Simulated assay, not measured.
Amino acid sequence: MKLVNGNGQLRVELTRCIEHYEEISIAVAWASANTDVFQTLLKNKKKIKKAVIGTHFFQTDPNVLEALYKQKSVKFITQPSGVFHPKVYLFKGHAGWEAIVGSANLTAGAINNNNEVSLLISSEDSDSSDVLKDLIQQIKTYSDMASYLTKPEIDRYRELAKIHRPSRDKIGATFGGRKADKGPLEVEFLTMSWKKFKKGSKRDPHDSLEERLEVLKICRDAFKEYGSFSKMPTELRQMVAGTPSTYDERWGWFGSMTGVGVFKKMINNNDKYLAKAVNSIPLEGEITKAHFDQFIVHYKRAFGGSRDGVATASRLLAMKRPDIFVCFNSKNEIKIKEAIGIKFGKKDYGAYWEELICRISTAVWWNTPQPVGVEDRAIWMGRTALLDAYFYDEGA
């Protein structure tokens, strides 16, 4: 008997046993397809006597189901009572057997990153015959609970897993496929109550909250009145875009785009692709990544691969949906990143959505239901865009 308490050791022992023994029996809560251990198992799948894999919370990779569903020795738990949560690996051969029992699933996290601990037991240990008998019976019990899957069922599972993955990633503080530098409990700004957030908004160092809310109202009313960005008068489009405008002297609030000449020209010329980009973001309701991606497609097409960027894109997004987006620019980005505990590997559209907007959407204050009071409701409707007031740095 020995303790297996490191990712490297776990990989070595699982790989060794899969390759060495003639029979493999497994019962795990979840499995990933993108590990060397799973690929080794696939190469030896004819050895599988019984395998039971759980799917609760859609945490098992759909590719695992796809790779194994035709194997009659493999079954899946799809509707557990409680959570199907065992982690048992049993390997049998002519000369003996070994088993790994502990906390490690057949997942990339368990094999590569997590802190896991398991016991490696074998036929050489005392009372081994009783242990083997119990392990065989337990895996059989799990198998009797499980069922086979069809290809259409796997296809449906894949679609559902895709829907639920963002929620799982948020809970695990994973954004853009990268673990956040700080967990949610370490980031005070994310755990701030609505009451505290509202109070902080009113302590705007430039005493501009009332006027900022008025700017957001002007933009919101413009989108309601004209429907399409292209139908707005030029001066109003300029104000929404943060380029010099005679419509209102506060056009530069929430991010002045006066230094981006190409962008100003497109706004003045009423570029059709910019209009398509802005129009692809709903004025009300949920904003999905599909909406954002469609915005970016049209937005980049407007620039033709030249001089587009997060600052100008996020200005338009923030004015269309200030509850969801913030104009992310050189005057606020350093303090925003510090406040929510992120460090972009690369500042691009994907990072803006995945690492910034998705992380902001996990904040306590952000998830507070819409309040009743007139001012409170106005702050709530512009809560993400108002981060510019929180973190604006004149000297940046």
Rank of each mutant, 00 (worst) to 15 (best):
M319C: 02
D221L: 02
L216E: 00
A27P: 02
Q9A: 12
D155C: 09
I18M: 09
T234F: 00
N332S: 02
P369G: 06
V260G: 09
A396P: 05
I26R: 06
I357L: 09
L209E: 04
L135C: 03
I281D: 08
G6P: 07
S118H: 03
G102F: 07
I336W: 05
P205R: 00
C358P: 03
D130V: 09
P205K: 15
D388T: 02
L14H: 03
L119D: 06
S201R: 14
E22A: 15
I287C: 10
G345P: 05
A318S: 15
R359I: 08
A351Y: 05
I53L: 08
G350K: 15
E153V: 10
R321G: 07
K87Q: 06
A33R: 13
V187K: 04
E286V: 04
G309D: 12
K347I: 13
W251I: 10
K337C: 07
S73I: 11
S122Q: 08
E355Q: 15
I100K: 04
I77R: 02
S147W: 03
R301G: 00
K47Y: 13
V28I: 05
L190E: 00
G345V: 06
I121A: 01
G373R: 11
V101A: 06
N367L: 08
F197N: 01
N270T: 13
G109P: 05
